[in-house]
């Protein structure tokens, strides 16, 4: 089978988020980048499908030059080749992101055959648009399912599970299909050293799509002003236990 995974490179923010002077991006001068958690699971799912059924898994990203690093991360985990749609760093809205991915899918399918499954994260780690998957599905006329927490391959179909109140809803999609997964669907592996070495020589196809007019136009980012607290130090080490219990009693917890 042939599987495509769509990943987005996001800044690995940890503490307080700092913005650039024009407030249109996160200041990443002191940050690394990462594949979002849902998408890490999508990559893992793709690798497992190929291990179980044979075939080829491909990874694609639309992002700046530095996103090559995240493509290499995916290649190190067992994806065969990558497609890099290079941007100048300016963000693309989900509608134009989906359109660029659809163009890339059509081009790849024209050259090397259809993808049985396109895997995505449920929502991008940073911008959380909740829509790229269904837009791709609509454009390609393929059944699409989001919020997938469980997946089993059938004969010409895929069984997908969503977590809902009180249990799981099961969907059965005819292939080719599109699925957006949630973290927890699997436990992603870590790349091995030989995997990292192999990734360096795997093919990466590069192109530079033009950024269309944005219909969801990001104007600026704002860091919400949470009440900046300073924790009251109850003590140091195990000697703090009585002070902790006093607080628990005050809060009515015990």
């Amino acid at each position: 089978m042939k599987v495509l995974v769509c990943i987005k490179s996001v800044p690995a923010v940890a503490g307080r988020i700092m913005l650039t002077a024009d407030a249109r991006a996160i200041d990443t001068r002191h940050l690394g980048f990462a594949i979002g958690p849902h998408e890490e699971c999508a990559v893992e799912q793709a690798v497992r499908l190929i291990e179980a059924h044979g075939g080829e898994a491909v990874v694609v990203t639309l992002g700046p030059a530095q996103a090559l690093e995240q493509l290499r991360d995916a290649l190190a985990l067992g994806i065969a080749r990558a497609i890099h749609l290079v941007t100048d760093g300016e963000e693309w809205d989900p509608e134009s992101t989906a359109a660029a991915l659809v163009d890339a899918i059509r081009a790849d399918e024209g050259a090397s055959g259809p993808f049985d499954l396109v895997l995505l994260g449920n929502e991008a780690g940073d911008s959380a648009g909740y829509q790229v998957a269904v837009r791709i599905g609509r454009a390609l006329g393929r059944p699409t399912i989001t919020a997938v927490k469980g997946m089993t391959m059938g004969d010409g179909s895929v069984r997908c599970e969503q977590e809902v109140d009180g249990g799981r809803d099961v969907y059965e999609l005819r292939l080719p299909a599109i699925a957006a997964v949630l973290e927890g669907i699997n436990l992603p592996r870590f790349p091995s050293v030989p995997g990292r070495l192999r990734a360096k020589s795997k093919p990466v196809e590069v192109s530079q799509p033009a950024r269309p007019v944005q219909h969801l136009e990001m104007l600026r980012l704002v860091v919400p002003q949470g009440a900046a607290k300073q924790a009251e130090i109850l003590g140091r080490g195990p000697e703090a236990a009585p002070a902790v219990v006093a607080v628990l009693q005050n809060l009515g917890v015990i």
Binding site: D126, M218, L221, P224
Partner: peptide, 14 residues
Amino acid sequence: LRWGGSLLEEAAIH
């Protein structure tokens, strides 16, 4: 909301 609410975005819908 972005980043689960750790960051807000102001956007125009055209």
